[in-house]
Amino acid sequence: MTSDTRGSRTWVLVAALVAVLLVGAAAGMLITTARGGGEDAPPSADSVDVGFAQDMRMHHLQAVTMAGIERDRTADPTLRGLAFDIESTQLAQASEMAGWLTVWVQPDLPAPGAGHMGWMSEGGTHAHSNGEGGTTTGAVQRMPGMASTDELNKLRKLSGAELDVLFLQLMLRHHEGGLEMAQYAAEHAAKGYVRNLADKIVKSQEAETSMMKTLLSQRGAQPLPSP
C-alpha cells in the first residue's frame, strides 16, 4: 500500500467521523423539535421525506463503493481527487440521512422487495423514470443509474485507462440517475432541511456530471446510455 493510499484512507475515516458527529448534533436538534409536535412532528413512512432519505441513501452508498474502488486503484491524480470528493461527500450525506431516519423512527433503507421511488408518484399521477429507460407512476425495483453486480465486479478487476473510463461512465450514469429524485425532493419534501440537502445534491451532482463528461471526452470515450 502506498503512502498516498494510506493518506487517502485516513482522510476518508476522518471525514466519516466528522459526519457521524454532525449527524449526532443534528439528531439532537431534530429530537428536540420533534417532541414539540404539530408541524415539527416526524414525517410519515409514505412521505416524500422518508422515501427520499431511504432511496437516496441507498443510491449514495453505491456511489461511495464505486468511488472507493477508483480512489484505491487509479494512477490518475485528477480522478483520484474526484473519487475522493464523491466518496467523502456522499458518505457524509448518507450519514446525515441515516440520522434523520433514526429520529423519525424509520428504517434506514427501504424494506426488501418494497421497491423504490413510489414516494414520487403523487397519488399515482406523477410519472418518473422506471430505471429501464421508460417511465412509470409506481414503485420501481431498480433506481435509475444504479450499476449492476456484473458492472461493479468488472470495475474491481480493471486497471489503468480501462478502469478510469469505466468509473467515469458508471459514475456519470449514476449521478444522472439520482438527479430526478433529488430534484423532486427539493420541490416536494415537507421538511426544510430535507429540501435543502436535496438542492445541494442537485447542484453538486450537476457540476460533477459536467466535469465527468469532459474527462470522458478527453479520453476518447462516450457516456453510457441514459438511465
Rank of each mutant, 00 (worst) to 15 (best):
M1V: 12
M1I: 06
S3P: 04
D4P: 03
T5E: 15
G7T: 05
G7A: 11
R9V: 11
R9W: 08
T10F: 06
T10M: 08
V14C: 02
A16R: 15
V20F: 06
V23L: 02
V23C: 04
A25Q: 07
A26N: 14
A27Q: 11
G28S: 07
I31H: 12
I31A: 09
R35H: 15
R35Y: 08
D46C: 00
S47Y: 00
D49N: 06
F52Q: 02
A53P: 01
A53Q: 08
H60G: 06
H60N: 12
A63T: 13
T65H: 14
I69Q: 13
I69N: 13
E70H: 12
T74F: 01
D76T: 07
D76H: 07
L79W: 02
R80P: 06
D85M: 11
I86N: 07
Q90L: 08
L91Q: 09
A92Y: 02
A94D: 04
A94V: 04
M97N: 00
A98T: 10
A98S: 13
G99W: 01
L101R: 00
L101Y: 00
T102K: 09
D108A: 03
D108Y: 00
L109W: 07
A111T: 13
A111N: 07
G113R: 05
W119G: 05
W119P: 04
E122M: 11
G123A: 05
G124L: 04
H128I: 04
H128V: 09
E132Q: 13
E132L: 10
G133Y: 11
G133K: 12
T136N: 10
G138Q: 12
A139F: 01
V140R: 03
R142V: 14
G145W: 13
T149P: 01
D150I: 07
N153W: 03
N153G: 03
K154N: 05
K154V: 05
R156W: 03
R156H: 03
L158N: 01
A161W: 00
L163M: 03
L168G: 03
L168S: 02
Q169M: 10
L172Y: 10
R173E: 08
R173Q: 05
E176N: 08
G177V: 04
G178R: 05
L179D: 11
L179Y: 13
E180Q: 14
Q183V: 15
A185H: 08
A185E: 10
A185R: 03
H188N: 15
A190S: 15
A190D: 13
A190R: 14
Y193C: 02
Y193P: 05
L197K: 07
A198P: 01
D199M: 12
D199S: 11
I201W: 05
V202W: 00
E206P: 05
T209K: 05
T209N: 11
S210I: 12
M211N: 06
T214E: 14
T214M: 14
L215A: 14
Q218S: 06
R219H: 10
G220A: 11
A221S: 12
A221Q: 08
P223F: 13
L224V: 10
P225W: 04
P227G: 09
P227S: 08
